[in-house]
Nucleic acid binder design. Sequence first.
DNA 1: GCTGGCGTTGACGTCGGGGGGAAGGTCTAC
DNA 2: GTAGACCTTCCCCCCGACGTCAACGCCAGC
Lengths: 131, 131
Amino acid sequence: MRIGELAERAGTTTRTLRYYEARGLLTARRAGNGYRAYGEADLHLVRQIRLLQDFGFELEDTRPFVECLQAGHPAGDSCAASLDVYRRKLAELDDCLARLGAVREQVAAQLARAEQANPRCELTLTEGTVS
Amino acid sequence: MRIGELAERAGTTTRTLRYYEARGLLTARRAGNGYRAYGEADLHLVRQIRLLQDFGFELEDTRPFVECLQAGHPAGDSCAASLDVYRRKLAELDDCLARLGAVREQVAAQLARAEQANPRCELTLTEGTVS
DNA sequence: GCTGGCGTTGACGTCGGGGGGAAGGTCTAC
DNA sequence: GTAGACCTTCCCCCCGACGTCAACGCCAGC
């Protein structure tokens, strides 16, 4: 399979696949004409990367999963290093959720206070001439 | 007050203040020697920007607050446009929280599944020779 | 008159995840 | 023999909020 087909089947672009290769996440053997040649295992690998990317993982965080697959394991998260990434990401997510939640409450409080202090703002807004 | 003092009192850097000026958020009259000269109102303005930045607002989102202050209002959020930004940011935060929460659950599920499928990972980790 | 600490403008670097396009090689079909 | 669809490498561009020089001006104290 060439890069275009792999990109299409993995739901990404050739540009992205070459970028993964430049980052050392994806390797390709070369056909006689210099074209990259991929197999089904590469498709699984790229799909693993995309799944984690969709979770918001950075590319570097997908590396343990990639190495796990390359080592012959059936799934990218069959290795301890991958589980560590899961746990770390989970902690990051919890931290992020806590901070965002706190900010949300602060902004809500600011809004409530400002609306209270200046109750005509909504009126001037709805009465404004919106061209 | 010169730029260094304003930066220190506002808890930021001179580079940042010049950046705000380049973005049109902050204007300074000039002393005879070309140095920027600021007053107390500018300090309030920069503090307003920093507060919103700490909330995670983008710089452009602080512009209505800045213009509100420059129009002579006592607070940056005394104007309708500022309240609109509050409401929009609140909606963004809620959306972000919902998506992050969903991702968190997905990652937690992946971790639980992988730990279940491969219960020795923790052992191999603790038994591994960590040099 | 010299050092040190301010200030000025301007330009370039950072980070992540690629996008866009040039300039060219290759394969297939008509 | 030629169109067009694919591939190759290479290099610059993007976002946001600054950081980091470089090269220079201004001013105070000694």
